[in-house]
Computed example of a mutant assay.
Amino acid sequence: MATNTNEATTVLIAGHWLGAWAWDEVLEHLTTRGCRALPVTLPGLDEADSERASRTLDDQVAAIERVMAAAADGEPVVVVAHSGANGPVSLVLDRHPELVRRVVWVDSGPATPGMAFAPDTPEDLDELPLPPFETLGAQASLEGLSAEALARFRSRAVPQPGPVLRQPVELTDEARLQVPATLVCCSIPSAQGRELADAGHPMFAEVAKLENVEFVDLPTGHWPMWSRPRDLAEIIAAAGASPVIAS
């Protein structure tokens, strides 16, 4: 049995309305540390894509698969999933658990099988624009975001495709639960997250099933890549350098 401590390539995937640009500050800190990280813009979140409103979870999964295949020449990678990126990343873990060395959930967690992110989204809604911050702040904490960060968020946000919001996440391979996981707890502290998982809360049900999970508290709002980019980069770098036991 051997222990491999080589740092893995890291794939960064932001949540709703966001593209690769959302990781700019985190990427700068990771690069300074010598980490190889690849931020991803998922299908449907590229403002230049004229058909973005029709993109699906399956399209997003396929894009992540392509990045993973090219990232490290077939070697397992670390996947960082922020917020609503949990849908496509959960599907990637289900379909290719052997290709993920560790998953880092940033104020997020694994999706519950069969659930859609927003199942009540009307069928005739093509895309969901970023709501007013007063509305958004009632749903997810904006703590720590400067006026500049909020302005950048507003100016660069791309509407979320309706099909991605409506599509259920169908999971079948429980090997996904064996992939080592790090939960970065920002707007909800780890103690509360553990309690919700133990109580069987639908949003945390899969967390209770994870076989190898660590909780890391990073107290801030729901977008730590802007409010605490250096600290988030340190957590991600540590996850990339974590040892893997090979038989």
Rank of each mutant, 00 (worst) to 15 (best):
L91W: 03
R52M: 09
A116Y: 07
K209Q: 14
Q192N: 11
F215N: 01
A138P: 00
E47W: 08
D94Q: 11
I64T: 01
T5C: 11
R156K: 13
L177P: 01
P161I: 03
V244I: 12
P219W: 02
E206V: 02
P131Y: 06
R102P: 03
I13R: 05
M225N: 07
C185T: 00
E206D: 11
A237D: 11
G87A: 15
F215H: 13
T41C: 09
G74D: 08
A70W: 00
V79H: 08
H29C: 02
M115K: 14
A151T: 12
V40I: 09
F153W: 12
D24V: 04
D124H: 14
L128E: 11
R152S: 13
W23V: 01
W226H: 15
S83M: 05
E51R: 15
V158W: 04
C185V: 00
A70N: 11
V92R: 00
V216D: 01
G15W: 01
V11S: 06
A8P: 02
A53R: 14
G44R: 07
S90E: 05
E148K: 11
E98G: 15
L30H: 05
A70G: 12
N212V: 04
W17H: 12
A62M: 06
A238Y: 01
I64F: 06
N212Q: 15
L145F: 02
L91T: 06
G74Q: 10
A118N: 13
A197R: 08
A205S: 15
D198L: 14
M203L: 15
D120N: 13
H29W: 06
E75T: 08
V164E: 07
E127N: 09
R228L: 08
P168C: 08
S187G: 04
L232N: 03
D198S: 15
T121K: 03
I13A: 04
A69C: 05
L145P: 01
A157Q: 06
D24N: 12
L128H: 10
V26N: 00
W105V: 03
G221S: 10
V164R: 09
D231H: 09
N4V: 10
S54D: 13
T10R: 08
H29Q: 10
A157M: 04
G193E: 09
V179Y: 03
S190D: 05
W223C: 12
R166N: 02
